[in-house]
Protein backbone atom coordinates (compact mmCIF):
# COMPACT_ATOMS: atom_id res chain seq x y z
CA UNK A 1 0.00 0.00 0.00
CA UNK A 2 1.07 3.53 -0.67
CA UNK A 3 2.37 5.82 1.99
CA UNK A 4 -0.24 7.42 4.05
CA UNK A 5 0.10 10.88 5.34
CA UNK A 6 -2.76 11.86 7.56
CA UNK A 7 -1.67 13.99 10.44
CA UNK A 8 -2.96 12.40 13.57
CA UNK A 9 -5.19 14.92 15.24
CA UNK A 10 -5.01 18.66 14.91
CA UNK A 11 -5.71 20.76 11.87
CA UNK A 12 -2.61 21.07 9.73
CA UNK A 13 -1.36 24.62 9.80
CA UNK A 14 -1.43 26.53 6.54
CA UNK A 15 2.27 26.16 5.93
CA UNK A 16 2.28 22.46 6.75
CA UNK A 17 3.70 20.36 3.99
CA UNK A 18 1.75 17.16 3.85
CA UNK A 19 3.60 13.92 3.24
CA UNK A 20 1.99 13.42 -0.14
CA UNK A 21 3.25 16.72 -1.52
CA UNK A 22 5.49 16.31 -4.54
CA UNK A 23 8.62 18.23 -5.43
CA UNK A 24 8.95 21.85 -4.40
CA UNK A 25 8.34 22.87 -8.00
CA UNK A 26 5.04 21.07 -8.01
CA UNK A 27 4.10 22.51 -4.71
CA UNK A 28 4.64 25.95 -6.11
CA UNK A 29 2.19 25.34 -8.92
CA UNK A 30 -0.49 27.96 -8.54
CA UNK A 31 -3.99 26.56 -8.48
CA UNK A 32 -6.29 28.55 -10.75
CA UNK A 33 -7.89 31.20 -8.59
CA UNK A 34 -6.52 29.45 -5.52
CA UNK A 35 -7.32 30.84 -2.13
CA UNK A 36 -4.65 31.13 0.52
CA UNK A 37 -3.32 27.83 1.69
CA UNK A 38 -0.84 27.21 -1.05
CA UNK A 39 -0.68 23.43 -0.74
CA UNK A 40 -0.62 21.30 -3.84
CA UNK A 41 -4.17 20.35 -4.62
CA UNK A 42 -4.85 16.66 -4.18
CA UNK A 43 -7.18 16.78 -7.11
CA UNK A 44 -7.48 19.48 -9.72
CA UNK A 45 -9.99 19.32 -12.53
CA UNK A 46 -9.86 21.87 -15.30
CA UNK A 47 -12.24 22.45 -18.18
CA UNK A 48 -14.26 19.30 -17.66
CA UNK A 49 -17.11 18.74 -20.10
CA UNK A 50 -19.59 15.93 -20.05
CA UNK A 51 -22.61 15.27 -22.22
CA UNK A 52 -25.16 12.53 -22.23
CA UNK A 53 -26.31 12.42 -25.83
CA UNK A 54 -27.57 15.89 -26.66
CA UNK A 55 -27.67 17.02 -23.05
CA UNK A 56 -24.61 19.01 -22.04
CA UNK A 57 -24.49 18.25 -18.32
CA UNK A 58 -21.16 19.77 -17.28
CA UNK A 59 -19.71 22.91 -18.92
CA UNK A 60 -16.00 23.66 -18.46
CA UNK A 61 -16.04 22.71 -14.83
CA UNK A 62 -13.00 23.59 -12.71
CA UNK A 63 -12.85 21.86 -9.36
CA UNK A 64 -9.99 21.80 -6.88
CA UNK A 65 -9.54 19.79 -3.70
CA UNK A 66 -6.88 20.36 -1.06
CA UNK A 67 -5.73 18.03 1.69
CA UNK A 68 -7.23 18.63 5.08
CA UNK A 69 -10.13 20.63 3.72
CA UNK A 70 -13.83 19.98 3.47
CA UNK A 71 -15.20 21.21 0.17
CA UNK A 72 -18.97 21.47 0.02
CA UNK A 73 -20.43 20.79 -3.41
CA UNK A 74 -23.80 22.47 -3.57
CA UNK A 75 -26.36 22.97 -6.29
CA UNK A 76 -29.97 22.34 -7.10
CA UNK A 77 -31.25 19.02 -8.38
CA UNK A 78 -29.92 18.53 -11.90
CA UNK A 79 -27.07 21.00 -11.43
CA UNK A 80 -24.58 18.23 -12.15
CA UNK A 81 -23.28 17.36 -8.68
CA UNK A 82 -23.79 13.65 -9.07
CA UNK A 83 -22.39 13.62 -12.58
CA UNK A 84 -19.29 15.45 -11.40
CA UNK A 85 -18.57 13.00 -8.60
CA UNK A 86 -19.28 10.07 -10.87
CA UNK A 87 -16.71 11.46 -13.31
CA UNK A 88 -14.22 11.68 -10.44
CA UNK A 89 -15.12 8.18 -9.26
CA UNK A 90 -14.57 6.75 -12.72
CA UNK A 91 -18.17 5.74 -13.29
CA UNK A 92 -18.68 8.18 -16.19
CA UNK A 93 -15.87 8.80 -18.70
CA UNK A 94 -15.25 12.50 -19.31
CA UNK A 95 -15.61 14.12 -22.75
CA UNK A 96 -12.88 16.71 -22.35
CA UNK A 97 -10.84 18.38 -19.66
CA UNK A 98 -7.93 17.31 -17.50
CA UNK A 99 -7.75 15.65 -14.13
CA UNK A 100 -4.59 16.13 -12.11
CA UNK A 101 -4.01 14.03 -9.03
CA UNK A 102 -1.28 15.32 -6.73
CA UNK A 103 0.18 17.30 -9.58
CA UNK A 104 0.26 14.43 -12.08
CA UNK A 105 -2.18 14.28 -14.93
CA UNK A 106 -4.20 11.07 -14.67
CA UNK A 107 -7.00 9.41 -16.55
CA UNK A 108 -9.66 7.68 -14.50
CA UNK A 109 -11.36 5.07 -16.62
CA UNK A 110 -13.10 3.00 -13.97
CA UNK A 111 -13.96 2.75 -10.28
CA UNK A 112 -10.84 0.67 -9.74
CA UNK A 113 -8.62 3.45 -11.11
CA UNK A 114 -10.23 5.89 -8.73
CA UNK A 115 -9.79 3.53 -5.79
CA UNK A 116 -6.16 2.93 -6.74
CA UNK A 117 -5.51 6.67 -6.64
CA UNK A 118 -7.10 6.89 -3.20
CA UNK A 119 -10.52 8.26 -4.12
CA UNK A 120 -13.36 6.75 -2.09
CA UNK A 121 -17.02 7.53 -2.55
CA UNK A 122 -19.65 7.01 0.14
CA UNK A 123 -22.91 6.81 -1.74
CA UNK A 124 -26.21 7.99 -0.38
CA UNK A 125 -27.64 4.49 -0.16
CA UNK A 126 -24.68 3.42 1.92
CA UNK A 127 -23.67 0.19 0.25
CA UNK A 128 -23.29 -1.82 3.42
CA UNK A 129 -24.33 -5.47 3.70
CA UNK A 130 -26.75 -5.81 6.62
CA UNK A 131 -25.93 -9.42 7.33
CA UNK A 132 -22.20 -8.78 7.85
CA UNK A 133 -20.58 -7.20 10.88
CA UNK A 134 -18.74 -3.89 10.95
CA UNK A 135 -15.29 -5.37 10.36
CA UNK A 136 -16.52 -7.54 7.50
CA UNK A 137 -18.19 -4.55 5.86
CA UNK A 138 -15.19 -2.27 6.22
CA UNK A 139 -12.95 -4.79 4.48
CA UNK A 140 -15.52 -6.00 1.96
CA UNK A 141 -13.88 -6.80 -1.36
CA UNK A 142 -10.42 -6.04 0.03
CA UNK A 143 -10.09 -8.65 2.74
CA UNK A 144 -6.73 -9.28 4.31
CA UNK A 145 -5.64 -12.89 3.99
CA UNK A 146 -2.95 -15.24 5.20
CA UNK A 147 -2.59 -17.57 2.27
CA UNK A 148 -6.17 -18.41 1.33
CA UNK A 149 -7.52 -17.87 4.82
CA UNK A 150 -9.06 -14.61 6.00
CA UNK A 151 -6.92 -12.80 8.54
CA UNK A 152 -9.77 -11.89 10.89
CA UNK A 153 -7.62 -10.72 13.77
CA UNK A 154 -5.65 -8.18 11.81
CA UNK A 155 -8.81 -6.88 10.11
CA UNK A 156 -10.56 -6.49 13.44
CA UNK A 157 -7.65 -4.60 14.90
CA UNK A 158 -7.32 -2.31 11.89
CA UNK A 159 -11.04 -1.59 11.84
CA UNK A 160 -11.03 -0.71 15.50
CA UNK A 161 -7.96 1.49 15.14
CA UNK A 162 -9.55 3.38 12.27
CA UNK A 163 -12.77 3.91 14.20
CA UNK A 164 -10.78 5.05 17.22
CA UNK A 165 -8.67 7.41 15.10
CA UNK A 166 -11.86 9.02 13.86
CA UNK A 167 -13.14 9.10 17.45
CA UNK A 168 -16.13 6.96 16.58
CA UNK A 169 -17.16 5.98 20.05
CA UNK A 170 -20.77 5.03 19.67
CA UNK A 171 -20.49 1.42 18.54
CA UNK A 172 -20.72 -1.27 21.12
CA UNK A 173 -18.72 -3.89 19.30
CA UNK A 174 -16.95 -4.02 15.95
CA UNK A 175 -18.30 -7.55 15.65
CA UNK A 176 -21.86 -6.29 15.68
CA UNK A 177 -24.01 -6.88 12.61
CA UNK A 178 -24.65 -3.74 10.60
CA UNK A 179 -28.39 -4.54 10.68
CA UNK A 180 -28.38 -3.73 14.39
CA UNK A 181 -26.94 -0.22 13.94
CA UNK A 182 -28.85 3.05 13.87
CA UNK A 183 -28.89 5.18 10.73
CA UNK A 184 -26.19 7.48 12.06
CA UNK A 185 -23.98 4.59 13.11
CA UNK A 186 -24.37 3.01 9.69
CA UNK A 187 -23.37 6.26 8.01
CA UNK A 188 -20.42 6.47 10.41
CA UNK A 189 -19.30 2.97 9.47
CA UNK A 190 -19.66 3.74 5.77
CA UNK A 191 -17.49 6.84 6.17
CA UNK A 192 -14.93 5.06 8.33
CA UNK A 193 -14.77 2.36 5.67
CA UNK A 194 -13.71 5.01 3.16
CA UNK A 195 -11.10 6.33 5.58
CA UNK A 196 -9.64 2.89 6.17
CA UNK A 197 -8.14 2.70 2.70
CA UNK A 198 -5.43 5.32 3.06
CA UNK A 199 -7.71 7.33 0.89
CA UNK A 200 -6.77 10.88 -0.01
CA UNK A 201 -10.13 12.02 -1.30
CA UNK A 202 -13.36 11.00 0.38
CA UNK A 203 -16.57 11.98 -1.39
CA UNK A 204 -19.73 11.94 0.71
CA UNK A 205 -23.06 12.04 -1.10
CA UNK A 206 -25.67 13.61 1.20
CA UNK A 207 -24.42 11.86 4.32
CA UNK A 208 -26.93 13.50 6.65
CA UNK A 209 -30.00 13.39 4.41
CA UNK A 210 -31.92 10.77 6.41
CA UNK A 211 -30.59 11.46 9.89
CA UNK A 212 -31.97 12.98 13.06
CA UNK A 213 -30.41 15.88 14.93
CA UNK A 214 -28.06 13.93 17.19
CA UNK A 215 -27.02 11.58 14.44
CA UNK A 216 -26.34 14.46 12.06
CA UNK A 217 -24.14 15.91 14.77
CA UNK A 218 -22.16 12.64 14.96
CA UNK A 219 -21.67 12.48 11.22
CA UNK A 220 -20.65 16.13 10.87
CA UNK A 221 -18.10 15.71 13.65
CA UNK A 222 -16.76 12.73 11.79
CA UNK A 223 -16.54 14.68 8.54
CA UNK A 224 -14.52 17.36 10.30
CA UNK A 225 -12.18 14.80 11.88
CA UNK A 226 -11.72 13.14 8.52
CA UNK A 227 -10.40 16.41 7.13
CA UNK A 228 -8.34 17.06 10.25
CA UNK A 229 -6.57 13.75 9.77
CA UNK A 230 -5.41 14.84 6.33
CA UNK A 231 -8.12 13.56 4.01
CA UNK A 232 -9.60 15.85 1.44
CA UNK A 233 -13.35 15.65 1.84
CA UNK A 234 -16.09 16.51 -0.64
CA UNK A 235 -19.45 16.99 1.01
CA UNK A 236 -22.53 17.02 -1.16
CA UNK A 237 -25.43 18.47 0.74
CA UNK A 238 -28.68 20.34 0.38
CA UNK A 239 -28.55 21.44 3.97
CA UNK A 240 -26.97 24.89 4.35
CA UNK A 241 -26.56 24.46 8.10
CA UNK A 242 -24.40 21.39 7.54
CA UNK A 243 -22.44 23.12 4.81
CA UNK A 244 -21.71 26.20 6.90
CA UNK A 245 -20.84 24.11 9.88
CA UNK A 246 -18.09 21.92 8.44
CA UNK A 247 -17.04 23.19 5.02
CA UNK A 248 -13.83 25.14 4.41
CA UNK A 249 -14.73 25.94 0.83
CA UNK A 250 -17.98 25.96 -1.07
CA UNK A 251 -18.30 25.14 -4.74
CA UNK A 252 -21.70 25.97 -6.16
CA UNK A 253 -22.89 24.41 -9.39
CA UNK A 254 -25.60 26.01 -11.46
CA UNK A 255 -26.96 24.17 -14.48
CA UNK A 256 -23.70 22.37 -15.12
CA UNK A 257 -21.41 25.34 -14.60
CA UNK A 258 -19.37 26.33 -11.58
CA UNK A 259 -21.17 29.42 -10.33
CA UNK A 260 -18.63 30.09 -7.60
CA UNK A 261 -15.77 28.53 -5.73
CA UNK A 262 -15.40 30.46 -2.52
CA UNK A 263 -14.10 30.16 1.02
CA UNK A 264 -16.91 29.66 3.51
CA UNK A 265 -15.87 32.66 5.51
CA UNK A 266 -16.34 34.98 2.51
CA UNK A 267 -20.00 34.24 1.88
CA UNK A 268 -23.27 34.31 3.72
CA UNK A 269 -26.04 31.78 3.86
CA UNK A 270 -28.20 33.90 1.59
CA UNK A 271 -25.50 34.34 -1.01
CA UNK A 272 -25.01 30.59 -1.32
CA UNK A 273 -28.73 30.04 -1.70
CA UNK A 274 -28.78 32.66 -4.45
CA UNK A 275 -25.83 31.00 -6.16
CA UNK A 276 -27.69 27.71 -6.10
CA UNK A 277 -30.99 29.05 -7.32
CA UNK A 278 -29.91 31.81 -9.73
CA UNK A 279 -26.28 31.06 -10.48
CA UNK A 280 -25.19 34.49 -9.25
CA UNK A 281 -25.30 36.68 -6.24
CA UNK A 282 -24.16 40.28 -6.44
CA UNK A 283 -20.53 40.32 -7.56
CA UNK A 284 -20.27 36.54 -7.22
CA UNK A 285 -21.26 33.92 -9.71
CA UNK A 286 -21.81 33.60 -13.40
CA UNK A 287 -22.16 36.57 -15.71
CA UNK A 288 -25.85 37.40 -16.12
CA UNK A 289 -25.76 36.35 -19.76
CA UNK A 290 -24.30 32.93 -18.97
CA UNK A 291 -26.61 32.37 -16.08
CA UNK A 292 -29.63 33.12 -18.24
CA UNK A 293 -28.38 31.13 -21.21
CA UNK A 294 -29.53 27.77 -20.02
CA UNK A 295 -32.92 28.68 -18.73
Amino acid sequence: MADHGPVDGGIPADDDIPAESGTPAERGTPGGGTPPGGETPVLRITGLNKSFGAVHVLHDVDFTLRPGQVTALVGDNGAGKSTLIKCIAGIHPIDSGTIEFEGRQVSISGPRDAAALGIEVVYQDLALADNLDIVQNMFLGRERTKGVVLDEDSMEQAARETLARLSVRTVKSVRQQVASLSGGQRQTVAIAKAALWESKVVILDEPTAALGVAQTRQVLDLVRRLADTGHSVVLISHNMNDVFEVADRITALYLGRVAADVARAEVTHGQVVELITAGRSGELGLAPVTAAENL
Partner: peptide
Protein backbone atom coordinates in the same frame (compact mmCIF):
# COMPACT_ATOMS: atom_id res chain seq x y z
CA UNK B 1 -17.24 -17.38 1.26
CA UNK B 2 -17.32 -13.88 2.71
CA UNK B 3 -18.28 -12.51 -0.71
CA UNK B 4 -21.13 -15.02 -0.99
CA UNK B 5 -22.64 -13.68 2.22
CA UNK B 6 -22.10 -10.11 1.04
CA UNK B 7 -23.83 -10.69 -2.29
CA UNK B 8 -26.70 -12.43 -0.49
CA UNK B 9 -27.02 -9.54 1.94
CA UNK B 10 -26.67 -6.63 -0.49
CA UNK B 11 -25.65 -7.42 -4.06
CA UNK B 12 -25.23 -3.74 -4.95
CA UNK B 13 -22.88 -3.15 -2.03
CA UNK B 14 -20.87 -6.17 -3.07
CA UNK B 15 -20.67 -4.93 -6.64
CA UNK B 16 -19.46 -1.51 -5.51
CA UNK B 17 -16.88 -3.16 -3.30
CA UNK B 18 -15.36 -4.60 -6.47
CA UNK B 19 -16.73 -8.13 -6.11
Amino acid sequence: GRHLYAVGGNAEAARRAGI
